[in-house]
Design a binder for these strands. Structure first.
Length: 1049
RNA sequence: GGGCUCGUAGCUUAGCCUGGCGGAGCGCACGGCUGAUAACCGUGAGGUCACGCGUUCGAAUCGCGUCGGGCCCA
């Protein structure tokens, strides 16, 4: 049974009902079961971090995923769709620390690592549950009951197993490396965890005294004075020119400075020198024999033993002094140069960011960034400071606690990704990237610069490194699974997190005891193994063999360096190939002006706000249609409102025929269009919906979701609502069992039932709601949910491009006619006798002339043969320049004569060569004296369309006038019915008094028509009627006063 | 500083791959319809296609450069 539906589209009701239905009937599982055994589609969900709240970007991300998965399911694919959660790492530790009021790792240790881990775990699980509900409210169908979670033992094993593979392949190494270090979190952080923003720092020029040359200095520049105690060398560029300069101070003293020749003026200005002379110039490589002393060597005892030399390096740029201060313990490039030149890796700074005893008594214990002024002071005291100032520049910060990072040399664990770089570059060629440049340009660039991956973190809440080292002999062992660990110890380990695993000791083959290294994994390593962890590999192997690698993943463009990369890296280590076959890279969500959404600007839009106002379907359709997936989305409320309006129009188009269908007991036996003689417009809309399906399939193949949704929108608004529904409406009012009406029902049914299937992946709630009523209501044998239906596809034999083209002309002509009516002041309510279509081409309007007649409210449609126009009026303009010289003084008379004549007569005379007679004289007029112009006659109002001109004949006859007035009166009575809030079938009594006998006479023949249109049992019309009724109103139509009264019968 | 990307009407955008009349929606102005009605429809105004140079018979579209936004890197 089909039922009537309420007037306006109410997304909340629709979605609540559908959600309840899905839940009650367990539709999600039934859809998945239905497709089992189909071709496989392995999707891996990029795990969102459990922050507790989804934002617009994560909503978009999941909507893209859900739409594609729903589409693939309808196409018959069996899906792997486990949702994923990224639950370890610093962000949660920081949150828990805040909650407990902790300031450092010491607080955690004294609180107890086990209790701390428990807090982190329950926090992460709680956040996950909250976010799950939010995703569900968007209609996102993933396997929410059985998601993969990085904190689960089986997941941890996937990471362990992968590390073991790295070890077996010789790709795991431990080394002293300079890393980004957060002094607050006291851990190494990944390049990708560094956030840059402007910071004000000292900018100092320092003079290093050259050994063996009196009063001579090498000048360097730095923004980190605190690294000067660790300076062990300087670097120059081999091709740059350097000079020894005698620089004079205001007081007449001088010193000899070494720096890049091009930068002398700048440096001396900084140092307020008054004059200089160049003593000697040389290339960078000529400086290599120099040695110098660290100016702070009296404070930093270790410095006295170092030999400070000059080295060549490519990273030296022609900026500042052209000579770079090298502290291998505190800089990436410095460190690499240090290794190459065998410099001491001197790092007198501890994990807490404070100087160690190696920095000497004066500095020991001081926090390095706070020590900057003191170092500067000490340099001044020793005459080593050339200049100092301040500089605002971009500086890195810990992305979680916002502390400025420092670089220090620490012992860390690495995976030698750089060894795999070339293989990775080859692998990405085999992956399909959407858009293409995401892989061929962006990702390629990132991979080309790939460095070794520092995977160790000195924290608690993470996957513990499964590395055990023997205290006696230093032997190392990597454990791959919990079972393996149990085998080695004879005891199972309940939870593979810290601190439980910390206590596990292994026996070394040398007889000594092996202890786990205390570090945990970088969280990027967690998600990196998702494609096999989600299949529970290595615990289970069958699933892995059947499904892996992933068919499809999609994430934002920030994941180029993130998950796209970490997965590829881990997979290269583990399996030597890419873990995914295709990748769709999507954009970011920004505000309407294209700015980042941020709390401080106050421009954050929450997905639940949009859902609350317009519903999940609107949000979904909006984010999909707003722009191409890979471009940034500028969220606009107005845009969302528009989508909502479009869905409302769809709702109206859907509900309009329902009352008639119900009244006529329309049933499934009458739903097949092949039973009827369809009108051309019926065949047209069926052709259009098939074209639409074809278009969607083509665009889905390239994940062009914006094109798909825009095609749907265009079809709903233009083809269905604005055109077909208008055409079909009068047919539904026929009150008999007319085959033409039944054909219209069958067509509407076919179109709507196809359309909801096409919409199902994108607006799953609305599609389901319409499907349940219209399709299931009619055919209880149909699949129980629209999402269990097969994708409708398209039938090429039902696509009639010729008909579609004809209809597009018909629409154009109708619009042009409406335009002409407006110019001619003739409302659409008033019929016209004819419209005339003139074109240079043979227009193929098919059998659609009846459509044109009704849509233009015209009694006749005349299509002229190609190139012909209606007969035009002629207008003349006189060419005085030609007339003057011929007729001289009589010109005035000639002009007068010509103007008084009918232009047609003038043309006839010229063509025939006869003279004209005027005031007794005759004149011979030639063609050049007169120009003729054709203009349409006053009754034909022209309007252009793409293939020609439409003329609307606005000539009024009494007949047309009568019909026009009748319709004016009908309309006003209908208006009053509305005002009285009458039921559609309620009968009335009407009196109409009007002050024009002429009009009264005209409309008398329309009395019956008016009565039946407005459902009047009694209709009185007259010049001077006594008017009474429940409602009386005065109207004016074209200068005629009409008084109407209406009463219930 | 480097890689990628975007820049089209007041706003949001299509078109760019594959060169040939710049097309929508919103907003604005005017109008229509009244059996979708707190709905719907039409018409109009509104454009230096960021800027410059080049290729071409022809450039929003292809190439180079500049400026501005975004992401990533240094």
């Amino acid at each position: 049974m089909i039922v009537e539906v309420p007037g306006q589209y109410n997304p909340k009701n629709v979605e609540d009902e559908v959600r309840e239905f899905w839940h009650r009937e367990d539709i999600y599982h039934r859809v998945r079961r239905l497709r089992s055994g189909g071709r496989r589609f392995f999707f891996v969900d990029g795990p969102p971090y459990t922050t507790g709240r989804i934002h617009l970007g994560t909503a978009w991300n999941k909507v893209i995923k859900d739409s594609i998965l729903r589409y693939m399911s309808m196409r018959g694919y069996e899906l792997k769709d486990r949702a994923g959660w990224d639950m370890h790492g610093l962000p949660i530790e920081v949150k828990v620390e805040e909650h407990l009021g902790f300031r450092s790792k010491k607080d955690i240790e004294s609180y107890g690592v086990d209790r701390f881990i428990e807090q982190c775990k329950s926090f992460a699980l709680r956040q996950k549950d909250e976010m799950t509900e939010q995703f569900k409210s968007l209609g996102v169908w993933l396997d929410w009951e059985n998601p993969y979670m990085t904190l689960r033992n089986e997941y941890i094993e996937a990471a362990w197993w992968t590390l073991k593979r790295a070890h077996e392949r010789g790709l795991l190494e431990r080394g002293l490396r300079v890393v980004n270090w957060c002094p607050r979190c006291q851990t190494a952080i990944a390049d990708s965890e560094v956030e840059y923003w402007d910071e004000k720092d000292p900018s100092i020029y320092v003079k290093f005294p050259v050994e063996g040359e009196e009063n001579t200095y090498i000048v360097i520049w730095t923004t980190t004075p605190w690294t000067i105690p660790a300076n062990v060398a300087v670097a120059v560029h081999k091709d740059f020119m350097y000079s020894k300069v005698r620089a004079w101070r205001r007081d007449g003293t001088y010193e000899i400075l070494i720096m890049a020749t091009d930068l002398i003026e700048n440096v001396l200005k900084q140092g307020r020198y008054v004059d200089y002379e160049i003593l000697e110039s040389m290339r960078g490589e000529d400086l290599l024999s120099l040695t110098y002393k660290n100016p702070l060597q009296d404070l930093v005892p270790a410095q006295r033993d170092f030999v400070h030399g000059v080295h060549l390096a490519d990273f030296v740029t022609a900026e500042n002094t052209g000579i770079v201060h090298i502290a291998p313990g505190h800089g990436l490039e410095d460190y690499e140069l240090g290794l190459e030149k065998r410099l001491p890796i001197f790092c007198p700074v501890g994990e807490d960011g404070r100087y160690t005893s190696e920095a000497g008594e004066k500095y020991e214990g001081k926090y390095v960034r706070d020590a900057n002024p003191e170092v500067v002071e000490d340099l001044i005291e020793r005459g080593a400071l050339l200049a100092s100032g301040e500089l605002v520049h971009r500086y890195g910060h810990c992305w979680r606690c916002k502390t400025p990072i420092i670089f220090i040399a620490t012992r860390q664990w690495f995976i030698r990704i750089s060894d795999l770089r070339d293989q990775m570059l080859q692998e990405i060629e085999r992956v399909s990237w959407y858009p293409d440049w995401a892989g061929s340009a962006r990702f390629k660039d990132w991979i080309s610069n790939a460095r070794d991956w520092c995977i160790s973190r000195q924290r608690y809440w993470g996957i513990p490194l499964p590395i055990w080292i023997c205290r006696s002999c230093g032997a190392m062992e990597v454990i791959g699974t919990a079972a393996e660990l149990e085998m080695r110890t004879g005891r199972p380990v309940e939870d593979l997190h810290r601190p439980a695993v910390d206590g596990v000791k292994l026996r070394c083959s040398c007889g000594g005891q092996m202890e786990r290294v205390p570090d945990v994994f970088d969280v990027w390593f967690d998600s990196a193994v998702a494609s096999w962890a989600t299949l529970n590999f290595p615990r289970e192997e069958n699933e892995f063999r059947v499904w892996w690698p992933a068919d499809f993943i999609t994430e934002g463009h920030d994941q180029t360096r993130g998950w796209f990369y970490s997965q590829l890296g881990a997979s290269m280590v583990a399996f030597g190939r890419a873990p995914y076959k295709s990748v769709l890279m999507h954009g970011f969500t920004l505000d309407e002006q294209g700015r980042k959404m941020s709390k401080s600007i106050g421009n954050v839009v929450h997905p639940e706000d949009v859902v609350g106002r317009y519903g999940a379907d609107t949000l979904r359709f909006y984010v999909l249609s707003s722009n191409a997936p890979w471009e940034d989305l500028h969220f606009s409320w107005e845009g969302a409102m528009n989508v909502n309006r479009m869905l409302n129009i769809l709702w109206n188009a859907y509900r309009f025929p329902l009352p008639y269908m119900i009244l006529d007991k329309f049933d499934i036996s009458r739903a097949d269009t092949s039973r009827y003689d369809l009108r051309p417009e019926d065949r047209w809309i069926i052709s259009r919906v098939n074209s639409l399906a074809k278009d969607i399939e083509e665009n889905m193949a390239g994940y062009m979701l914006h094109r798909v949704t825009r095609s749907l929108q265009e079809f709903i608004l233009e083809d269905l609502s604005r055109w077909y529904i208008q055409l079909v409406r009068p047919r539904t009012w026929i009150e008999t069992d007319d085959p033409d009406k039944l054909a219209a029902y069958a067509t509407l049914y076919t179109v709507m039932s196809t359309l909801v299937k096409l919409l199902a992946p994108f607006t799953p709630f609305l599609a389901e709601s319409i499907y349940q009523n219209l399709v299931r209501g009619l055919d209880p044998g149909a699949p129980e949910s629209v999402h269990m239906c097969d994708w409708p596809g398209y039938r090429e034999d039902l696509i009639d491009k010729r008909l579609e083209e004809s209809m597009s002309y018909v629409r154009e002509i109708s619009e042009a006619a409406a335009n002409a009516r407006q110019k001619g002041g003739r409302k659409l309510r008033w019929p016209v006798s004819r419209i005339i279509i003139s074109s240079d081409e043979q227009l193929d309007l098919g059998d659609l002339l009846h459509v044109l007649r009704t849509q233009t409210n015209s009694k006749d449609v005349i299509v002229l043969p190609p190139g012909e126009k209606p007969e035009m009026d002629l207008e003349i303009s006189l060419v005085q320049k030609k007339i003057g010289p011929v007729f001289k003084g009589e010109s005035k008379d000639v002009v007068e004569a010509l103007k008084s004549m009918n232009p047609r007569e003038v043309k006839r005379i010229i063509d025939s060569g006869e003279p004209i007679e005027w005031k007794g004289k005759s004149y011979r007029i030639t063609g050049e004296m007169v120009e003729f112009m054709e203009i349409p006659p006053a009754n034909l109002i022209p309007a252009e369309f793409s293939k020609g001109v439409v003329y609307v004949d606005v000539t009024l006859t009494d007949e047309l006038k009568a019909e026009g007035y009748a319709r004016e009166i009908i309309r006003r009575i209908q208006d009053m019915r509305k005002e009285l809030d009458l039921k559609v079938d309620e009968m009335i009594r009407v009196s109409v008094a009007l002050d024009s006998s002429e009009v009264l006479g005209l409309i008398s023949g329309w009395k019956d028509h008016i009565s039946s249109e407005v459902r009047a049992t009694l209709l009185r019309m007259g010049n001077d009627l006594d008017i009474e009724g429940e409602l009386t109103k005065d109207w004016e139509v074209d200068g005629i006063n009409i008084r109407v009264s209406v009463a219930r019968a």
